[in-house]
Design a protein around this nucleic acid. Structure first.
Lengths: 130, 130
DNA sequence: CGGTATCCTCCCAGATACTG
DNA sequence: CAGTATCTGGGAGGATACCG
């Protein structure tokens, strides 16, 4: 009797996220934010410098990149390493925890990329008889 | 020689998402939006009516719920069924495609919920020597 | 190079009111 | 019940300038 597993899948227990008070929502917000998603994916390729990330992630500004990296660092997903050199050299790496979330985020992004044709096809469909 | 697989994991090919022109970003935006995430998760429990979703998802307004459902319907993730009754009765179901994304989204949300202690613990850590 | 500070703008999203 | 319409404030996020 897998009460727990069943309960989870039926949505009975797993659902704290659905409650407005659930702290997960905040973390989720950082991770699923416009630039958060892309930073996590970009860092899956290994340690990267600031300018490297800015170049990799199309359209991101200095401001938003820095802000996003700070949030992810606070959450413990990204490790910031300042080499204390002149000219400045700072690089960013996923922590073990960061690797785990990044894996999920990437899986989602990959699924979307892989199924774009299916999605686009549906979007242009004439509304069928309901 | 798994050139493709290797290329994907090294970040060489998988990276259209990182390009500002990638259409995936739009879909990703819908799916990872504040309410999009929660709607997908809520609908994993099976077909639900409008009011049911509003009750399940803490803090959502009529306006945002309707708007989110419309977007997800356009993308082909949600099927809207209007029973054409009085009083009105409309229910929402995940399409097969919707089930697939929802699974990824739920995996992410579950990971966060399951690792909240780890995350919170890190957040209150004093900055270690780097 | 790797940021921060400031200003400014637009759109997300909440509140309220109304409808079939 | 299941929405839409309208108004509005706040925050996300871009542009620019500056700094160690």
């Amino acid at each position: 009797m897998t009460t727990l597993s069943e309960a989870i899948h039926s949505g009975a227990l797993r659902g704290n996220v659905l409650a407005s008070t659930c702290p997960s929502r905040d973390i989720l917000k950082h991770v699923t934010s416009r630039w958060g998603v892309l930073v996590l994916i970009a860092l899956q390729g290994g340690t990267k410098r600031f300018a490297e990330l800015r170049r990799l992630i199309g359209g991101v500004s200095d401001r938003m990149l820095a802000q996003t990296l700070q949030l992810l660092e606070e959450d413990g997903f990204v490790l910031r390493h300042d080499h204390q050199e002149v000219p400045p050299r700072v690089d960013y790496t996923l922590t073990p925890m960061g690797e785990e979330v990044a894996e999920h985020v990437r899986a989602l992004a990959d699924w979307i990329e892989g199924n774009l044709p299916r999605i686009m096809a549906h979007q242009s469909e004439p509304a069928e008889t309901v």
